[in-house]
Design a protein around this nucleic acid. Structure first.
Length: 464
RNA sequence: GGUCCCAUCGUCUAUCGGUUAGGACACGUGGUUUUCAUCCUCGAAAGAGGGGUUCGACUCCCCUUGGGACCGCCA
């Protein structure tokens, strides 16, 4: 079994944030690069906090960004019996023991440790309990018998060699008092059963590797490779929190970010390949490796995301862009009337040139989307009598045209500029305001050409 | 506090002992343009500090400083 297998193992206790998405991406990319498998495992052994809605959110997020897991997602809680079985084995083999300490006792130890300013390590009271009296009516927790002396070395594929003294690893709990397995046990058992070859996860799991390695050794199981990737920091500079405004995929979808852009951004956050900035999905699969992953944490940079998004908006197929736009509007704005579809599809080619996000397209397409044009009092002032006269003349000429194109329009405008002894702005601005209500927006020819002829007439008529 | 990790422009990063330290975003300038943009030109911008090793260090080693992670019967 030399087939590479990676997994992403989130706990459904909250919405997945983009740090997690990046971890999933790296795992997925790594396995696909090696023509291996990528699994999704939902770690729901914390029954109190796990929720189905979060599980769905996680799966949706991954799907949105283009990550597809092999086979059906694994639900960790379904394997609880297997985990318990292993715990039993460890107990029998003498690698684990029953701990009858009460919560109060443990808390007391923690308090003491805190006061002394030393790290809390469980005092291993029940490790060798031959002369202790087992209390009645107390369910024990099962603790793993960690090594007390010596050192352990982990060869991390990203971080390099990490060496720590075994004495700082406490006798961690593998089975709770209520008989349920903890993460340390479940993760190892599942990784082993799933034949995971590479565990790629956030830096914050590094210490767990030293605990988990001991379980592998006790069970005589093959140790997978480990790679701990640096965390993503918020713009403020600390670990990404669920409270950060832009931390979940949905936050970005709401902003009008395209999945390709975010995928590309996340890929380049902590990983690089020479000077290359833009990666198609195929390229990223082909080029991804763990060597390119940096060691230092990186900060989230929204302007970079926006700029990448701008690139993707400009380079995506226009029909496709329209479809995405439509979905975006349905979800976050008002649904688009079918009658506008053709106009919008045609207009994408210039709308996309002034947009960093789908939201920008929405703003610039207002003159198409809404049937009534709102003109602010400030802009209304710009439509003075001379301007109105220009508009009137324009309307007359415009009506006469049988076949509209840019050349025709250009001729009319030139003529008007001449006749009224003004410049392009003198004609263009009133036209834009009358047609769109705004001083800003797409090119005036684009606007006129994108609108139906009678629509243009109607809008100009209103200006009296 | 203990343990571990990290350290190049503001940000993401390239450099695998010898470079005028490169690219991208953001920023500034100039130009094209029909408004806003786009686009193009040019520019400013970095090896945290101190010791070594070496003919030569951003690159290797040590210390300091700074930042981060972990220290749950959460995952």
């Amino acid at each position: 079994m030399s087939l590479v297998a990676t997994r992403f193992a989130p706990s459904p206790t909250g919405p997945l944030h983009i740090g997690g998405v990046r971890t999933a991406l790296f795992n997925w990319l790594f396995s696909k690069n090696k023509k291996g498998k990528f699994y999704l495992r939902i770690e729901d052994t914390d029954k109190e906090r796990s929720k189905d809605e979060y599980k769905d959110q996680i799966i949706q997020s991954l799907k949105w960004i283009g990550i597809q897991h092999d086979e059906k997602e694994y639900i960790q809680s379904k394997n609880i019996n297997k985990h318990k079985e292993i715990s039993e084995k460890l107990l029998k083999k003498g690698f684990a023991y029953k701990c009858y300490c009460s919560e109060e006792e443990i808390n007391e130890q923690k308090e003491k440790a805190k006061k002394k300013g030393i790290p809390f390590v469980y005092n291993r009271k029940w490790r060798d309990s031959s002369n202790l009296e087992v209390p009645k009516n107390v369910n024990p927790a099962i603790r793993f018998k960690s090594k007390i002396s010596g050192n352990t070395l982990i060869k991390d594929l990203v971080q390099g060699d990490i060496n720590i003294s075994n004495s700082i690893i406490e006798d961690f709990v593998i089975l709770r008092k209520d008989g349920s397995p903890t993460y340390q046990l479940s993760a190892v058992v599942d990784d082993h059963n799933m034949n995971i070859t590479h565990v790629i996860r956030g830096d914050d799991h590094k210490i767990n590797t030293f605990k988990q390695k001991q379980i592998y050794e006790a069970m005589n199981w093959k140790l997978p490779e480990f790679a701990h990737i640096p965390l993503i920091h918020s713009e403020a500079g600390s670990k990404l929190s669920k409270r950060d405004k832009v931390s979940t995929i949905n936050d970005y979808i709401k902003l009008g970010i395209l999945s390709g852009a975010l995928r590309n951004y996340l890929l380049r956050l902590g990983w690089s390949y020479k000077d290359k900035e833009i990666f198609t999905l195929e390229e990223s699969i082909k080029l991804f490796d763990l060597k390119g992953v940096g060691k230092s944490p990186s900060k989230l940079d929204i302007s970079r995301i926006l700029s990448l998004n701008e690139y993707y908006i400009k380079h995506i197929d226009e029909k496709k862009l329209f479809e995405l736009f439509k979905v975006y509007c349905e979800k976050f704005k008002k649904g688009i009337d079918k009658s506008k579809d053709d106009t919008l599809i045609r207009s994408m080619k210039f709308l996309k040139n002034k947009a960093k996000t789908l939201e920008d397209i929405y703003q610039n397409a207002q003159y198409i989307l809404s049937n009534t044009i709102q003109i602010s009092s400030e802009n209304l002032k710009l439509l003075d009598d001379p301007s109105k006269k220009i508009l009137k003349n324009f309307l007359n000429e415009y009506k006469k045209i049988s076949k509209l194109n840019k050349d025709n329009l250009e001729n009319i405008l030139k003529k008007l500029i001449d006749e009224h002894k003004t410049n392009f702005k003198g004609v263009g601005q009133p036209l834009r305001i009358a047609l769109t209500g705004s001083k800003f927006g797409p090119g005036i020819y684009d606007i006129i050409l994108s609108l139906d002829k009678n629509e243009v007439v109607e809008r100009l008529k209103i200006i009296e």
